[in-house]
């Protein structure tokens, strides 16, 4: 549709003036800011940014820091589990809701409301529910199972899974809604045909419907992954990175280095690593999605 709009109208001055905020944002903030951070990640900036080159020192130090390695490991665990589970849960929920059920709106509303809440609220609620003295553990023990232990936020080995529960609760509604939109976009004839062929429903989902929903899956994947890499507020609110450094994540490492440890160079190097991670996912996606065919919209 990007065909030529009235081209005789060359008095496009107003449009250009109107687009100044967009141009400034795109060039100065997005491109400029990104380049600036990448450049300064090769400097010895401490309390203030200074152009004193140190080569790859910041990166070497970054990858030798335990807190960063733990952050990366946590992000990998959280990210992989989140990715798999949020898609499984989101898709199953969408498939269940798609069965022409009654009270569809009510159920969808209940499943999606956590998504309207902030990560801070999410983190604090789950911090409370997972509190071993008053929350789930205490309740189950009250039922008579005295040795029941469920204290993810106080056990460094599994603390990240406590965060995962909260993340899933908050985010699965979004995936459900997107998947549901995808399922609704499938022609009913496909279902009829598969039924005529006697294909069981689960097989039809896996081998026919899901492959047909590829675009929805890809877009959802990009949204979910970029969200995972950004995870910050949830950690701050729910665990503060603890116990110890058990639930640190890269975004928090960046913040701590820049605004608390007065170690800007480390912050820049760490945020550049985050950028690289996102780029590794977004660029192939963009090439696949927009590169091949010119036909769009």
């Amino acid at each position: 549709m990007a065909s030529t709009r009235p081209n005789q109208l060359f008095r496009n001055k107003s449009a250009k003036i109107a687009a100044i905020p967009m141009i400034v944002t795109a060039l100065f903030v997005f491109v400029g800011g990104t380049i600036w951070t990448v450049v300064y990640s090769f400097t010895k900036s401490g309390l203030l940014p200074r152009l004193k080159w140190v080569g790859l020192d910041q990166y070497e130090r970054l990858w030798a820091t335990r807190k960063w390695l733990v952050s990366i490991e946590n992000l990998a665990i959280y990210g992989l589990c989140m990715l798999v589970l949020v898609f499984v849960i989101g898709f199953i929920l969408a498939a269940l809701i798609d069965q022409k059920i009654r009270f569809e709106d009510t159920i969808r509303t209940v499943i999606l409301y956590p998504y309207a809440l902030s990560f801070v609220v999410t983190g604090l609620v789950w911090q409370w529910i997972l509190n071993p003295d008053f929350g789930v553990q205490n309740v189950v023990r009250g039922w008579g199972w005295e040795s029941f232990t469920f204290d993810p936020l106080y056990n460094a080995d599994i603390a990240i899974y406590g965060v995962l529960i909260a993340g899933l609760w908050q985010g699965s509604g979004l995936v459900m809604v997107l998947m549901l939109a995808g399922l609704r976009g499938i022609d009913q004839d496909v279902w009829k045909a598969s039924r005529v062929d006697g294909i069981p429903a689960w097989k039809a989902y896996i081998f026919i419907i899901i492959p047909m929903m590829r675009p929805v899956f890809v877009t959802t994947l990009v949204i979910v992954v970029t969200g995972i890499v950004k995870i910050y507020d949830l950690i701050v609110a729910q665990t503060g990175g603890g116990p110890g450094i058990a639930t640190e994540v890269p975004a928090k490492y960046v913040y701590d280095m820049m605004f608390q440890a007065n170690n800007l160079g480390q912050g820049f190097a760490a945020s550049t690593m985050m950028l690289v991670t996102v780029a590794l996912i977004v660029i192939p996606w963009a090439i696949l999605e927009f590169g091949g065919s010119k036909r769009h919209d």
Partner: peptide
């Protein structure tokens, strides 16, 4: 072109642009 940059900008982790801003 600016629009494309803008859309790609949405994917840049905020942490990258935090300090320049």
């Amino acid at each position: 072109a600016f629009f494309t940059i803008l859309i790609f900008g949405a994917f840049i982790p905020y942490q990258v642009m935090l300090y320049p801003i």
